Amino acid sequence: MDSEPPFQEAYKSLLKEQENSIAVKLIDDEEVVEECEVPVIDISRLNGRNETEKEECKKEITRASVEWGFFQTVNHGIPQDVLQRMQREQVKLFRQPFEKKTGEGDKLLGLSVAGNSYRWGTPTATCLKQLSWTEAFHIPITDVFTSSAQPNRLSLTIKEFAATVSSLAHIIAEILAENLGLKSAFFTENCLPNTCYLRMNRYPPCPLPCKVFGLMPHTDSDFLTILYQDQVGGLQLVKDGRWVTVKPNPEALIINIGDLFQAWSNDVYKSVKHRVVTNGRVERFSVAYFFCPSYDTIIQSYREPRVYKKFSFREYREQVQVDVRTTGNKVGLPRFLL
């Protein structure tokens, strides 16, 4: 039984349309600068006794969040063997037959997940530029810690990974809030395990690299995202108006600012557009943790004059879904400008 999602069959008309047209490449080689290494921050300094080093580490985190919207952390506290195990188990998961992934995803995960956690492609795509050549398992964190299913090696590894990245997300969020002069229990009260989620991603080899995205350009609709990626590469982000390729670092986790933090900080921190490009020969794996509040949480800029009107996370998610359905693209924060 084949493990690959039926991209060729499901998107036959879009792919045929591409073959029959003299289309401009979606991804122009000339627009991508050389591979770059986004800021790398050793956050073990936060746990040391040297107050000067602690403060310098916090400054580096806030500076990167202002100037890049992205940074990498090393010595982050997640054992290398957990990350390696995560990747090995992920590969085994995606090697399962396609029919099992679509019909028995919770059994494969060793978790009791509400609904079908497996997704692939882009059901709403009406043209190739809206298609993401990827498959993924979308897992609410609450299901990771409250599952009644018989655990397996994958689910146990997911629990270890989720617990440590959740703690890291809270630490980073508090540092960024403190830089704004805000010391409150906002993240502790609103960003709970039952509001955050994990997504394991696989980007299969694509027959039309540079014409189909692995993940189309977007910003994240959360406060923070923490990503662990393999060494294949393919993640790109916008820096100073140009796309740059993020150089993989086997020891680092990538952290990026989401839309909610940009709105909450009144544009101090930047939620930067990013994408994943496809590869014609090699598959790519990653796992992402999304630090989100409850749907009823109100997002309000911390100072006046405010750039954005007040909105709930539920309103934001619903608007994003409407825009994707009607236009094929996420509009995001511009919908909420004052």
Rank of each mutant, 00 (worst) to 15 (best):
P6L: 10
Q8E: 12
A10N: 10
Y11C: 05
Y11P: 11
S13A: 10
L15D: 01
L15G: 00
L15T: 03
I27V: 14
D29W: 00
V33E: 12
E34A: 14
E35I: 04
E37Y: 01
V40C: 09
I41L: 02
I41A: 09
I43Y: 08
G48E: 12
K54I: 15
E55V: 04
K58I: 11
K59N: 12
K59S: 13
I61H: 02
T62Q: 10
R63V: 05
E67N: 13
Q72F: 07
Q72N: 10
R85N: 15
R88P: 01
R95K: 14
P97H: 08
K101V: 09
K101C: 12
E104N: 11
D106M: 09
K107F: 06
A114L: 07
R119M: 09
P123A: 05
Q130I: 02
T134L: 12
I139C: 04
D143R: 11
V144K: 08
F145D: 00
T146V: 07
S148Q: 15
P151Q: 07
P151H: 11
S155E: 14
A162E: 03
H170M: 04
A173N: 11
I175T: 08
I175E: 07
L176F: 01
L176V: 06
A177K: 07
L182S: 09
S184V: 08
C191D: 02
L192R: 14
T195R: 02
T195G: 09
N201W: 09
R202G: 00
Y203M: 08
P205Q: 12
L208G: 00
P209H: 04
K211Q: 11
G214S: 11
G214I: 10
H218M: 07
D222F: 00
I226M: 06
L227R: 04
L237W: 02
G241E: 01
V246A: 15
K247C: 04
P248K: 08
N249R: 02
P250E: 06
E251T: 13
L253C: 05
I255L: 14
L260E: 05
D267F: 06
D267E: 11
V272I: 14
K273V: 09
H274N: 03
H274Q: 04
H274D: 05
R281D: 12
A288R: 04
C292H: 08
S294W: 00
Y295A: 10
D296K: 14
I299E: 04
I299G: 10
Q300E: 15
R303H: 12
P305N: 14
V307Y: 06
K309F: 05
E315F: 01
E315K: 03
E315T: 11
Y316W: 01
V322F: 05
T326W: 00
N329T: 08
K330Y: 00
K330R: 11
P334Q: 07
R335I: 00
